[in-house]
Design a protein around this nucleic acid. Structure first.
Lengths: 240, 240
DNA sequence: CGGTTAGTTGAGCTGGATCAAGCGTAGTGG
DNA sequence: CCACTACGCTTGATCCAGCTCAACTAACCG
């Protein structure tokens, strides 16, 4: 059940057998949810955190005039609202983008971890700090990149994050259950402009996106176009 | 030395005398730094975290073509790189914007806290999750708000955060040592456009910014213009 | 008093928005 | 099996918020 989570954690730090046991004891009640399910609503108080075992979700906020902004994409192995453990009430909503398998981590059990497993606590803390690092990367993209590199950057980020949990195929393609409208909500542009930008991206020959699948033809080229620097994903082992 | 930090923490949760002692023991070596000092460089590994006792700092990232994006403003009482405790290496830089007083929290001591003070650990963890919530608010602003509400939103956020640490005067004005160019790096627009947007804001009569001082004339009006919802600042007591 | 930095203004340009229509395909129900 | 619908993608025409470039002013400062 926590296999993808462990992949993600062990890419960054060691997880002892005892800690793994503590995690298994913490994460319960696995189930499927259909596309479009809203896991948590903005402002909602939570008693459990949700682990995304398989599938794609997004965190998002709405504005009164109907505009929506996706704040972060969540992939298999992500604790989509671990921050809810300390915040208690979420400042954004979370929605399933395709069919998802999720599990629950009751805050009472997470609390036990903070009382009995200092290193594992730091590792989980690290994990929410990773989210913040991803947010910062998005702030930079939205503030200072044009549509094309912004789109390319998103595809680069997802590529590496999915690779970590073995969700990228050998030909550097990966499943991504988003519509162009969803992408527009990630990138802060209109769906029409996503469409045109996608055509530009295709014309570069670096990557394309069709019927829910991203094909990357030239990783180095895409990284260069996006000015992608993966340091913010902290892929190498470090903490403790 | 940690008075502003305590103000910030106690606005959100209780801090016991024992925990306060642990914090005092953790935070050492207070000193002044001049404007423009770069406290941490992007990619730098850190052994201590920095507490901002007085003054203003910003987290920022640079792009190769010289574009800069400010990711978050830091005010008195903020642990500007507490996330460095778990990340070890920062994914962005941090710079003093005016003269600042800072202090250090060695990671070794923070680690002791995680081993001996579970509740305080959760509170510090909460604190870095607050940063992430602020980032999300910025993502929304940059992605979906026009220049004028975006500027207004920034002034609203700083107003509340500064109020928490008693840095707002009775007439709802506060010191903010930024140039229009700095603001443009916060808002993801050009300095020229900041200038014009500032004129628009002045014309609304809701607020103005001159020679490093923000005057808010109509808080409710400014909140409405910005569509400001302070829930992401988690100002009411909750955790534990 | 010359140099520098911050703010301001104007003119023209452009990336992305807006509005509107058309098109392909996968249901869905009669 | 076919009409009907709905949704996602695409295209075209026009518009505008914000950018670029360039010059000018005001305040400060050594």
């Amino acid at each position: 059940m926590i296999e993808t989570l462990l992949l993600r954690l062990r890419a960054r730090d060691e997880v002892s057998a005892e800690e793994e046991q503590a995690l298994r004891w913490t994460v319960t009640h696995s189930r499927e949810v259909p596309p479009g399910t809203i896991i948590v609503h903005e402002g909602q108080e939570t008693e459990t955190s949700t682990l995304l075992i398989e599938g794609f979700m997004c965190r998002y906020k709405d504005l009164r005039d109907g505009k929506r902004q996706i704040l972060e994409m969540q992939v298999a192995g992500d604790f989509v609202d671990l921050h809810g453990f300390t915040l208690k009430r979420l400042d954004h909503s979370i929605m399933a983008l395709g069919p998802c398998r999720i599990a629950e981590a009751p805050h009472s059990r997470l609390r036990r971890i903070t009382e009995e497993h200092a290193h594992l606590t730091r590792l989980l803390w690290f994990t929410t700090n990773l989210d913040a690092a991803a947010h910062r990367s998005w702030v930079l993209s939205l503030g200072r990149r044009r549509a094309l590199p912004r789109l390319a950057h998103l595809f680069c980020e997802l590529h590496l994050r999915l690779q970590l949990v073995r969700r990228v195929l050998a030909d550097n393609s990966y499943h991504l259950p988003l519509t162009q409208a969803d992408l527009s909500d990630c990138l802060g542009i209109t769906p029409v402009h996503v469409n045109r930008t996608m055509q530009l991206l295709r014309e570069t020959g670096l990557a394309e996106f069709r019927s829910g699948i991203v094909h990357i033809h030239d990783i180095a080229g895409l990284h260069a176009l996006a000015e992608f620097d993966p340091q913010y994903l902290y892929l190498s082992r470090k903490p403790r």
